[in-house]
Design a binder for these strands. Structure first.
Length: 467
DNA sequence: CTATGGCACGGATT
DNA sequence: AATCCGTGCCATAG
């Protein structure tokens, strides 16, 4: 049961299948939560801080047996980010240089010590007991400022009512990196809106969007949103702009996704990317470095102590523990498979869409998930799940959904924008159709209208010559 | 009469 | 099986 070569994953139980399916479509953040809960509920699983092989002490970054001593390390899953480099066509996974790519960004604010920084602010407002709880909560923040423990457990641990813990948490949220200690971006945003609305008017629509349709927002389904709230896309885009200018879904990060794209009407997005693509050392002449972000540091593995304990366990406990063990190993397997699939997927996509990544939307090749799935020899729905909900950070620091790589019309839309930007007389939709066909894009008049709407470009008679 | 947006249909995609 | 997307037809605004 222990020899997990990636290839041997094929034959799997239905439980395995089901779990892989759910894991596959999760975001890093969601995955992190999932891992946390499993970790807390299943004693067979443990997270080792060490990234080294316990027997030979070699740095261990890849799944599979330890390369040096080939110790039976294979049940452990390294949770370090997967980094690989794309020189041109071929990839290799870099396990050696991996240290070099520790993300140096994002540590801009008073990074010395976020927990004590916050604690200092709120200390006076709390009684001693609450202060202890606060301190505990604050030590369990992740890099984004989100809480990583669940309040109920904390309450039990400290023998206080849940409401006390929640109360403390609420105080924390109002401290300086506004929204720290939230459980997710949504909560952080809501807290920020609460505070903001004390000093200025916040459009009700924004709150509603965040409250009810956070999903659509993070996935930037603006047309969908416009439809749901029965307002224009323009309106929604304004809201989004407001949100990205005034709110920060990741409290502990000072900025997320720079606004260094003045030319294009920047559709600002936030969200912790699942995949980060960058030039090596940020120099455009260098090859691309692709990093698949994986939550948690260290290695997730079956606790060896648990295994030995299992052998000597009482009969009645044995069954239950055995069960835990199987679940844990299943979980790890699924996780491995998830990572494996995503890695292969991203490799393919990066090679294919390199021009898009480096030169811009115009060069996006319209590719469907089906094509990729054929090339990778996996079921199309696997690709679907792997793609959905994930975001990618491009070298220019923009964060876009992974599904953009499969957008059938993005390139046309970008050419359309280009044309409209260049021509100084407002062209009617019909004329635009002509211009587009000259560029080699054949679309119907009606479709041009839709693209315009998607891009938030006004109709011809309302457009142009604003100053 | 022309330019657009709305509704709805069919085929492709997921 | 459900959803998305391009398109054609028609109503309406200018």
């Amino acid at each position: 049961m222990q020899q997990i070569l990636i290839q041997s994953i094929r034959p799997m139980t239905t439980a395995h299948l089901a779990q892989t399916m759910t894991l596959m479509s999760l975001t890093v953040e969601e995955l992190q939560q999932e891992i946390d809960t499993v970790l807390a509920s299943n004693p067979a699983l443990e997270l080792v801080d060490e990234r080294r092989c316990p027997t030979c002490h070699r740095l261990l970054t890849e799944k599979g047996p330890c390369p040096i001593c080939s110790a039976p390390q294979n049940s452990g899953l390294s949770m370090d980010p997967v980094v690989f480099i794309s020189p041109r066509e071929d990839f290799y996974t870099s396990s050696e240089n991996q240290e070099d790519y520790d993300r140096e960004d994002d540590y801009s604010v008073n990074e010395e010590d976020l927990p004590s920084y916050v604690l200092r602010q709120i200390g006076p407002d709390l009684n001693p007991k609450e202060r202890i709880i606060a301190a505990y909560l604050l030590t369990n923040l992740d890099e984004d400022g989100f809480i990583t423990v669940n309040s109920l457990e904390v309450a039990q641990y400290f023998h206080v009512p849940l409401s006390t813990v929640e109360g403390v948490r609420r105080v924390i949220q109002k401290a300086d990196p506004l929204g720290v200690g939230s459980v997710n971006p949504k909560e952080a945003l809501l807290v920020q809106i609460d505070i903001l609305s004390e000093t200025q008017d916040v459009p009700e629509l924004i709150r509603k969007i965040i409250e009810d349709e956070m999903d659509l927002l993070t996935h930037r389904q603006y047309n969908e949103l416009a439809h749901k709230f029965n307002v224009s896309i323009r309106r929604i885009q304004n809201c989004v702009k407001y949100i990205s200018e005034n709110l920060n879904p990741f409290p502990a990060r000072s900025h997320w996704g720079d606004i260094r794209h003045p030319g294009e009407n920047s559709t600002q997005v936030y969200h912790q990317p699942d995949i980060i693509i960058n030039y090596l050392n940020d120099k455009p002449e260098n090859p691309l470095v692709v990093e698949i972000v994986i939550p948690l540091k260290g290695t997730l593995r079956i606790n060896p102590l648990f295994k030995t304990a299992l052998k000597e366990a009482d009969e009645d406990k044995k069954e239950e523990w055995q069960n835990d063990l199987e679940k844990a190993s299943l979980f790890i397997k699924c996780l491995q498979q998830r990572n494996h699939t995503i890695e292969r997927l991203v490799q393919k996509v990066v090679v294919l869409q390199r021009p898009f990544i480096t030169k811009g939307e115009k060069y996006l090749k319209p590719v469907t998930r089906v094509q990729i799935s054929r090339e990778l020899e996996v079921h199309e729905s696997t690709i679907s799940r792997a793609v959905s909900n994930k975001t990618v950070q491009l070298p220019n620091r923009r964060i876009i959904p992974l599904s953009s790589f499969f957008d059938r019309s993005l390139n046309v839309r970008s050419v359309l924008r280009e044309i409209i930007g260049k021509e100084d007389k407002p062209m009617s939709d019909a004329e635009l159709v002509n211009s587009l066909s000259k560029e080699g894009y054949n679309v119907a008049r009606r479709t041009v209208a839709k693209y315009r709407a998607m891009e938030g470009i006004l109709p011809a008679h309302l457009r142009n010559f604003s100053p």
